[in-house]
Design a protein around this nucleic acid. Structure first.
Lengths: 148, 148
DNA sequence: AATACAACTTGCAATTTGCAAGTATAAATT
DNA sequence: AATTTATACTTGCAAATTGCAAGTTGTATT
């Protein structure tokens, strides 16, 4: 029995999370898919941070393997691929928005409106529901049906 | 005017956060300092993930530069250094705990007790206050005085 | 049939990481 | 006073990862 070279990445909740989005690019891709309505490779590529194509492909497959994204060919055009956020991905919305509230407090150059933090703190459940409805709207538009 | 090689890392709240703890090791160090009462280089080094010494030194200085950690020599022993979490770091607690709640839901091998998520959801403010009090206790013990 | 999209893959240089070993300063021990 | 121990780093180097440019594949469009 030699000293293990890789650790068990499960068990500790923080470590589990770090294994999935404790990476700059995964983190930003989740932002794009959960908050900016992006679903395709080219849309992700267009984000201002400028991810390179090999890294994007790698991170998309990691997020798919982690059960965060659901990869499917676009029903409207078979040469296009869509990455839909799963329930597991949607469920990090509260934490993600919590992070954004924190950033708006400490980033002097924040672009977020002042109302953002206040409205989340006064009605967190309603805010999450609003974002979820937006996700449903985008996905429903692509899939060609609306959800209840 | 050539094409800029580094992007403006501010403005977008998610990007700001990604710049500070969108890194596995920074993320885990914040866990150690905010939730596990760790304050010194050797304590961080002892965490089960096995960070190497050069990376630890690098991440500690980054977190200090980002205003997340307050580096001070230990008043009890001048050969030792303590890294105290700042208010800015403490304010990430709600999001961090939100992430942990998410992990306990999706990590089959989670070590967190079932009560954890429930107690945070029923009384988020009280839960945060409890963690803050723990941080005060640890810091007060080191500094040799107790806070209100 | 030819062109254009969209989503990747490949090759390679440059940066970052991980590991082992070394250094610096202060405290404790002999 | 001299030696050992503790603590917090720094340095060197091989290995892994990243970023950039270019190429490939499958599907529309003209």
């Amino acid at each position: 029995m030699t000293k293990p070279r890789s650790i068990d990445w499960n068990g500790c909740p923080t470590r589990y999370a770090a294994g999935i989005f404790g990476d700059k690019w995964c983190f930003l891709l989740l932002r794009d898919v959960l908050l900016h309505g992006k679903r395709t490779y080219s849309e992700f590529l267009g984000s201002p941070e400028g991810i390179s194509t090999n890294i994007l492909a790698d991170r998309l497959s990691r997020l798919e393997a982690a059960g965060m994204l659901d990869r499917q060919t676009d029903p409207r055009k078979a040469s296009r691929v869509c990455y839909f956020p799963t329930r597991k991905a949607r469920d990090i919305l509260p934490a993600l928005i919590g992070v954004m509230v924190w950033s708006t407090k400490y980033d002097a150059r924040t672009e977020a409106p002042e109302s953002f933090a206040a409205s989340f703190q006064s009605d967190p459940v309603g805010t999450i529901e609003w974002y979820e409805a937006e996700i449903d709207r985008v996905d429903g538009e692509i899939r060609g049906f609306a959800r209840g």
